[in-house]
Each structure stands twice: as structure tokens, then as C-alpha cells.
């Protein structure tokens, strides 16, 4: 379904993504982890074609999407929606209009210039908002919403594209634990119910473990781990993050957990410290 081969990105002499290869054969929820600067964002941006790749192949359903240009490139972009850490909404426009931006790829330029969208699109947008539990904010300006609500608007915009893949670049990094959980659950539900592939950059291990079917660990642009959450032990995580013995998983956590989990984590940390 998705095949990445030798994907590389160089910024001048600096290699951000280094010869990344992996395959995904069915829609899954994939988490990419790695420390800051590991190349996670660059990978997703190359996939969405916001950043040009230097080398390699990224084939989706048998077609390499990297050389696409013009209309074909835009069509690919609308198949592969992107969610950003800072939401990247248009703050001064209302929520529904922001969601409707997901249809820009398939609607005529002229009509959209004047904000003329078909009524069915508007209905669909409101349904999607309802599905994400924020329909009551439909008429507000995006900037009037909380961070978690804005991120759900961004997810709604992505869903509006009716994509096969949803890329999420640290979708919960600027959210509080409560909102982070809502957003991650929404993404998971989209995967479960619609069967869309979700690839999310995450910087908290427990989130990745909890929501993802498969985890890819990156370090200095290279894939250093690719496996199930169960295979991601603390030792492996320490390798991925290139941390010393004092590495604490809790430090990367933003999730709300019940007491039991916290206790478990504390015990684990204690072991690590020993």
C-alpha cells in the first residue's frame, strides 16, 4: 500500500532524512518517534509534498508520488491530509469555512474565490464537526476556540478531504493532557471506523504505545526502530532518543493516566534509575 525506499532529504550539507525505507501493507495507525531534529517533520512534509525530497521513492498504491507535479501533485495532496502541531488554520475565518478548505482541491477556483461552496459540502462539514463533538462551535471564528478544539477543526478539515492517509505532525504537542487525549482518540476512531491510514509524529512514548499499531523510531534521519508497541522497550527507547541512563519515560509523557499507570511508570523509572 505504502512503500518508502531510500527516501533522503538534504538541506545543504545537512542530512535531515537519511535513506529511509519501510513498507506498510494495510491501513494502520503508525507512530513516528524520535528526538527533536530527528527528521520526523521533514519526512511527513515530504510525503505531503510540502517539502521536496532529494532522493528516493515514496509509492502509494503502486505509484511513486514524489515526481508528481501540478494537478496530479495537488490530487495527491488532497488524498493525503496533513495535521500540524500549530493547527495551521485560518484564525479569522469561521470554523465551517476552515473545514471547507478541505474541499479546495476538488472545487473550481473561481467559485471558491467568493466562498461559494455547494450546500452538500456545508452539510458534510457540519456532520464531521459533529462527529468530532464541536458542531456547536460551527459559526465561531477559529481563533475563538481552545487549542484542542482548533486541532479537532484541523482534523475535520483533513476528513473533509476524504483522504486515504492522514499525516499528523505532533498533533498534541501544544495541547494540555485533557485535549491531547481527545485529539488522539479522535484520530484513533477515524482509523478504526473509516479505515484510513494515520501516520503521526509523536514525542511521547506512552501515547505512541497506547494508540498506535506500529511504531517507527528515527534518529539523525535514519530509521532505528520499526515494530509493534510491545517491542518498544525502555532500552530501545533510550537508544532512539540517544539518552543516557537517566532517561525517564515520564519526561516524555503528557497523557493523563490513572493511578495504577502512574505507579507502574514510577516503578519502571525506579528500575531505570537503579
Amino acid at each position: 500500500m505504502l512503500e518508502v525506499k531510500g527516501l533522503t532529504k538534504r538541506f545543504g550539507g545537512n542530512i535531515a532524512v537519511d535513506n529511509v525505507s519501510f513498507t506498510v501493507d494495510r491501513p494502520m495507525m503508525i507512530g513516528i518517534i524520535g528526538r527533536s531534529g530527528a527528521g520526523k517533520s521533514t519526512f511527513l512534509r515530504m510525503m505531503n509534498r510540502l517539502t521536496e525530497a532529494s532522493e528516493g521513492v515514496l509509492a502509494f498504491e503502486g505509484r511513486n508520488v514524489l515526481p508528481l507535479v501540478g494537478k496530479a501533485k495537488r490530487e495527491w495532496q488532497s488524498t493525503c491530509a496533513m495535521i500540524f502541531q500549530q493547527f495551521n488554520l485560518v484564525p479569522r475565518m469561521d470554523v465551517v469555512s476552515n473545514v471547507l478548505h478541505g474541499t479546495l482541491g476538488r472545487r473550481s477556483t473561481l467559485a471558491t474565490m467568493f466562498n461559494l461552496y455547494p450546500e452538500s459540502d456545508i452539510h458534510q462539514a457540519i456532520d464531521i464537526l459533529d462527529r468530532l463533538g464541536i458542531a456547536q462551535h460551527a459559526e465561531k471564528r477559529a481563533e475563538a476556540l481552545s487549542g484542542g478544539q482548533q486541532q479537532r477543526v484541523a482534523i475535520a478539515r483533513a476528513l473533509m478531504q476524504d483522504p486515504k492517509v492522514i499525516l499528523a505532525d505532533e498533533p498534541i504537542a501544544s495541547l494540555d493532557p485533557m485535549n491531547a487525549q481527545t485529539v488522539m482518540e479522535a484520530l484513533r476512531r477515524i482509523h478504526d471506523e473509516d479505515g484510513r491510514m494515520v501516520i503521526a509524529n509523536l514525542h511521547t512514548l506512552d501515547t505512541a504505545r497506547r494508540y498506535c499499531d506500529r511504531i517507527i523510531g528515527m534518529r539523525d534521519g535514519r530509521v532505528v526502530f520499526d515494530g509493534t508497541p510491545a517491542q518498544l522497550t525502555t532500552g530501545v527507547a533510550r537508544d532512539i532518543y540517544g539518552a543516557g541512563a537517566d532517561f525517564s519515560e515520564a519526561a516524555t509523557s503528557t497523557e493523563i493516566r490513572d493511578h495504577h499507570d502512574i505507579e507502574a511508570a514510577e516503578i519502571r523509572n525506579a528500575e531505570v534509575a537503579i
Binding site: V96, E119, I122, H123, I126, D127, D130, A135, Q136, A138, E139
Partner: peptide, 11 residues
Amino acid sequence: APLDATRAHYL
């Protein structure tokens, strides 16, 4: 029910 209202209102 409120959803229909929201929709009508937004339209």
C-alpha cells in the same frame, strides 16, 4: 436536534 438547528442556522 441541535445539529439540525446548527446546520440551518449556519446555512
